[in-house]
């Protein structure tokens, strides 16, 4: 089944583009069929239907009711491997 993942940042310009690309590559490498929705943080709520995971590169204050994993390691490079593992754990279940 296709999993839906939201990747979001403040403006959907720079950091979420990088993070979305990395999530897409990660899923491809691991044979996970995924649909990635890249949007602004402010738009997340309107895309939540059927979403398995949200990966923001900014802080999110509200509880979205779905798993949220910070995508910051994709930007800083610190803890990137652990982040990939966490994402796979959520998407493989």
């Amino acid at each position: 089944m296709k999993k839906k993942v939201i990747v979001a940042c403040g403006g959907a310009v720079a950091t979420s583009t990088v993070a979305a690309n990395k999530v897409a590559e990660l899923c491809k490498e691991n044979g996970i069929n995924v649909e990635i929705i890249q949007c602004r943080i402010s738009e997340i709520k309107s895309h939540l239907d059927g979403v398995s995971l949200v990966v923001p590169t900014s802080r999110i204050k509200q509880d979205l009711g779905v798993p949220v994993i910070s995508g910051m390691p994709f930007i800083s490079g610190i803890g990137e491997e652990e982040l990939k593992k966490k994402i796979l754990d959520v998407l493989k279940t």
């Binding site: 959907a12 583009t17 979305a20 690309n21 897409a24 995924v34 649909e35 990635i36 929705i37 890249q38 949007c39 738009e43 895309h47």
Partner: peptide
């Protein structure tokens, strides 16, 4: 908004 595949 962009969806799926993201970039190529």
């Amino acid at each position: 908004m962009k969806s799926s595949g993201v970039t190529n």
